[in-house]
Amino acid sequence: MDLSQVSAVLGFVFTLLIFSYLLGDNVLYRLAISVFVGLAAAFTAIVTLQSVILPLLQHITAYNEAAFLLIAALLAVLLLFKPLRGASGLTNLALAVLIGVGAAVAVYGAITGTLIPLTLATAESTNTEGIIEGIIIVLGVVSSLVYFQYTARRRPDGVVVRGPITRTISVVGETFVMLTLGAIYGAAILSSLIVLVDRLDFIVDFIANIVGGG
């Protein structure tokens, strides 16, 4: 048996182990998952080492580059010691750097990546999609935004409800939001169906090869 055959047999066996989950949560399925997680962790480590960490080390050509990496390593070491209670003051500082920089990147990304482009695209939809369609899109976006509004009003009996106008708009918004999520769910079923057919095809081919002596 050559290496490609060993590989195919292992692939077949593990596919069956995973599919055994359809009969219920069982030892064989858990065994396959444990192997998968172990392998995934190892390959994640290898890829990060090869494509990120080693190139960084290889490109140290100047004193300031080395100092930069040293600071990065120091911050990472501080994060590593997060579980130690005595070091929480210092480790919090490293976490604070990640949070501060990350928050700024997130704010900038939200504005330039979503807020401005989607607002402009929505406002221009009367030009790009036609007037009726454009108006529907704008009303859909507006009502979807209203649907997620947090603040409401408290009735004299203590029950918190939305005002009549907000409630009406939010029902329209709910319709747009749920129609979208339902369609995305349907598309997800279709994509996973393609993978399922491919896997069943693989199993049938494998068995046919064995039966046919190929």
Binding site: T122, A123, T126, G134, V142, L145, Y150
Partner: peptide
């Protein structure tokens, strides 16, 4: 967040009216 939400709604409606 709600205040910003309504601010965005006003801008969207204004831009749509301007485009029309």
């Amino acid at each position: 967040i709600d205040l910003m939400r309504w601010f965005l709604i006003v801008i969207l409606l204004f831009l749509m009216a301007y485009n029309l």
